[in-house]
């Protein structure tokens, strides 16, 4: 599997309050949430993002609250993959659990700029910057997490386990 899209670039410590402000958490409908995704940090994001586009950020992406609404909003907005130097741990779990692909890759976070066209191979973790003709290698996932991803998230994984 792979994804290709245009990059939206952000800095360090993008918190869940800017990914989806709490004032919109009186619903858990992903389509409603997506309308306000990144609103407090980048009011243009939701108007510009196209299906398949990619978010790239520096350290500690998704820090703050445990709200799963954050990766849900990003996924529903059409983002195909998030690449960061590091992720906050609850966001990391949530993204895997709901089937939003993420990759930790400090080199990509440095090398990729806003507007670059980027391709990601989910199986190998190879990230290709088409605009700059560079490649970066993301950390591969441990086997258990790959199984989660392959199942399409934790709930499907448990259902499969139950069926066996």
């Amino acid at each position: 599997m792979e994804a290709q899209g245009t990059v939206f670039k952000y800095g360090n410590n993008v918190d869940t309050d800017v990914i989806i402000p709490a004032r919109y958490l009186n619903t858990s409908d992903p389509a409603e949430l997506a309308k306000h995704c990144m609103e407090d940090i980048d009011s243009e994001f939701i108007h510009k993002v196209k299906d398949g586009d990619i978010i790239v950020a520096d350290k500690n992406f998704g820090c703050g609250s445990s709200r799963e609404h954050a990766p849900l909003a990003i996924k529903k907005a059409g983002v195909s993959v998030v690449i960061a130097s590091t992720f906050a741990r609850i966001f990391y779990r949530n993204a895997l659990n709901i089937g939003l692909p993420i990759f930790e890759c400090p080199e990509a976070a440095v090398g990729i700029a806003a507007g670059d066209e980027v391709k990601v191979d989910f199986d190998t973790g190879v990230i290709t910057n088409v605009t700059k003709n560079e490649t970066y290698q993301a950390e591969p996932f441990p086997e258990f997490m790959q199984a989660l991803i392959k199942a399409g998230g934790l709930i499907n994984y448990i259902r499969e386990q139950k069926a066996q």
Partner: peptide, 27 residues
């Protein structure tokens, strides 16, 4: 585990407690 990031509060009592998301809570 608690689907709230401040679930880590109970470490004051010598427990392991940590915040998770809603899907982890469901599981």
């Amino acid at each position: 585990i608690g689907a709230d990031s401040h679930t880590c509060t109970y470490g004051a009592l010598g427990a392991f407690s940590t915040g998770v998301g809603s899907t982890d809570m469901a599981a």
